[in-house]
């Protein structure tokens, strides 16, 4: 597996569609519910960019779409489930991971992606995040981190960095923020990466890599909320944010996650931080049952589907 993503970037052929000129379609269109467009995201929002990367990762990894289910929680990123042409579940606030856990355990053949925001996954859903990582449930979690509660109007999130102004901390935040890669690594995730919405090729590649992993994979995507975070903190518009991501991002694959915390305008350490092997929940469960029950153990799938 290549670690030199910048070299890969130059050789990337994702955009070679081999289609005749008069029949050009966006290659990600088949992955989207085009009858639901336009989407609700603001101009300059990064979530659409991440969905584009996700779709390109599906193209590249040639994953069986019928086996793929996507689960979102609540919030701006929570709306992703509604726009992808997959079996998709828009659940309750914070509970995408436990819902996804049920899908995966009841039908282990499914590839289950959790696609949600930083507030949904790490505040109200924080307990589920760490326990799913601890259990090493085979889920691919894509966490779009815009550093704020965006859907509700720009309130402080557990990820809001030092002294940023929010609608609920109008004089600046003062509580420490979560370093999400550090949190999920400590809890047990087998794959942890971070990219920004500037790093579209690397992000698509990371999503593809996560599909190759068995176990709890977590990809954090730093993404602008020009409407509520950048503007309120006088950080410019989305283009300025892209320039910031470009200038201040530093690729450090394998960086100790304890050192990748975010600040309001400082360096953003990106890359693949964790890629390790650990038996996933269902493998451990099966091994335990076989060991304890022997011939009395019955495979779950033999009796599970009830239609």
């Amino acid at each position: 597996m290549s670690t030199d993503l910048n070299t890969d970037l130059l050789n990337n052929d994702l955009l070679n569609t081999d289609l005749p000129d008069d029949d050009l379609v966006n290659p990600v269109e088949p992955f989207l519910r085009t009858d639901r467009m336009p989407h609700i995201w603001c101009p300059g929002c990064g979530i659409g960019t991440t969905v584009n990367c996700f779709a390109r990762a599906l193209i590249e990894s040639k994953i069986d779409l019928q086996s793929l289910a996507l689960v979102s929680g609540i919030g701006c990123t929570g709306r992703v489930a509604g726009y992808v042409a997959l079996d998709s579940f828009h659940t309750t606030h914070g509970r995408a991971i436990p819902f996804a856990t049920g899908l995966k355990l009841a039908n282990p053949k499914l590839n289950v992606v959790v696609y949600s925001g930083d507030g949904d996954l790490s505040a109200i859903g924080g307990n589920h995040l760490i326990h799913a990582a601890r259990r090493n449930i085979d889920l691919k979690v894509i966490c779009v981190n815009n550093l704020i509660y965006a859907m509700t109007g720009g309130q402080t999130a557990p990820t809001t960095p030092d002294h940023a102004t929010t609608s609920t901390n109008p004089y600046g935040t003062f509580e420490p923020s979560f370093n999400l890669p550090h949190l999920v690594e400590a809890a047990g995730a087998v794959y942890v990466a971070r990219w920004t919405t500037f790093h579209v090729r690397q992000l698509a590649r990371a999503i593809g890599e996560a599909f190759q992993k068995k176990g709890f994979s977590f990809i954090e995507v730093i993404s602008p909320c020009p409407t509520l975070y950048q503007r309120r903190n006088k950080l410019g518009d989305s283009l300025d944010t892209m320039k910031y991501y470009k200038a201040k991002s530093k690729v450090k694959n394998g960086a100790p996650t304890s050192e990748v915390g975010l600040t309001i305008s400082g360096e953003i350490i990106v890359g693949k931080f964790v890629d390790r092997e650990r038996p996933d929940y269902q493998s451990m469960m099966r091994a335990q049952y076989v060991d304890s029950l022997g011939d009395r153990f019955v495979e779950p799938m033999e009796a599970e589907v009830c239609s």
């Binding site: 436990p98 856990t101 049920g102 355990l105 009841a106 499914l110 779950p300 239609s307």
Partner: peptide
């Protein structure tokens, strides 16, 4: 399959994931 979840919030939605997977 039985799974003991981290709280009742989780348990009450995990079971629904199971239902939509066919159980």
């Amino acid at each position: 399959t039985f799974i003991q979840m981290e709280d009742e919030l989780a348990a009450s939605i995990t079971l629904q994931g199971g239902v939509w997977a066919g159980a």
